[in-house]
Design a protein around this nucleic acid. Sequence first.
DNA 1: CAATAATAGTTCATATCCGAATTAATTAGC
DNA 2: GCTAATTAATTCGGATATGAACTATTATTG
Lengths: 156, 156
Amino acid sequence: MHQPRIFHLIQRAHSALFRASDRALRAHIGLTASQQAVLFVLMIRDGRPISEIANELNMGKSSLTGLIDRMETAGMVERRHHQEDGRSFKVFIKDRGRAAADGAMRGTKRINAELLAPFTATERAVIEKFLRHVSDNAASIVDAQSQVSFKEKVSP
Amino acid sequence: MHQPRIFHLIQRAHSALFRASDRALRAHIGLTASQQAVLFVLMIRDGRPISEIANELNMGKSSLTGLIDRMETAGMVERRHHQEDGRSFKVFIKDRGRAAADGAMRGTKRINAELLAPFTATERAVIEKFLRHVSDNAASIVDAQSQVSFKEKVSP
DNA sequence: CAATAATAGTTCATATCCGAATTAATTAGC
DNA sequence: GCTAATTAATTCGGATATGAACTATTATTG
């Protein structure tokens, strides 16, 4: 059966899309692509703790510290102390961030539409299902297959 | 018509897969996921200039400088001066790199198989076509749609 | 209720990644 | 042939991303 190098293809596709979008967002909106991702999460629902944002984006929480620091400096978002839990923050989007997200969203919608333009509704469903499958199962698949395949380390 | 947030889905899928793979590769083979990608390109054909590797991976050449530096230090690859062009190098894979790539390839093949396991041959073809479409057209689509959507910058 | 475990975030060292500017070498144009 | 444009790679400054270790706080539990 035909076996495309899916990992490689995903890496290339992501790289091309992420790079172009990051460039355009920086130039036109003053956002990075990663900051856009955070804003979109917050536009859906505000006031979430950092761990939840990290989860939503499949990222480690330590990755978000600096990202949110810079977004806070830029006046896009705001950390507020959680009233009941002194360890935790809630992250809120500010007007400046809402405006940036609105602008970015317009472009991203068009880009999404173009990326899917050559595909039928049925095909789109397959694509979506696949991407969700990878999102949800990559960690367990990689762990399981690594156990089987990488029995020995490469000698130093 | 149903319009999934494709950009977001690609970002999440890539993030999940890349993170898990990077962790497994570091632990078992002593490679990063990015180094694996370079090795796979070199396993297909050796002795390529750095720009060609960058092209192959949809990356800027400046990103490869440090990557190849570290791989060279680790004894995986080797830069050799191009005999006819003094500006250029050819990058060759060394035994140590070949061994690492072989090990990594075994795991990656299994992972690719698992990622595609729930999909029929027809569906796989759609998935592959989509990922290649994104790879090849992301830059021009993003540029074109940015022109249209981001007419005004967000005020500072 | 005090000792312990668990949890939320940050800090740290390291590795990517980028675009713009730079350097060195080759090629084009005249 | 020689100057100008081009090209290959590196350097630089900045942003992202990770896991491990750490801090502070909350929850558990004996």
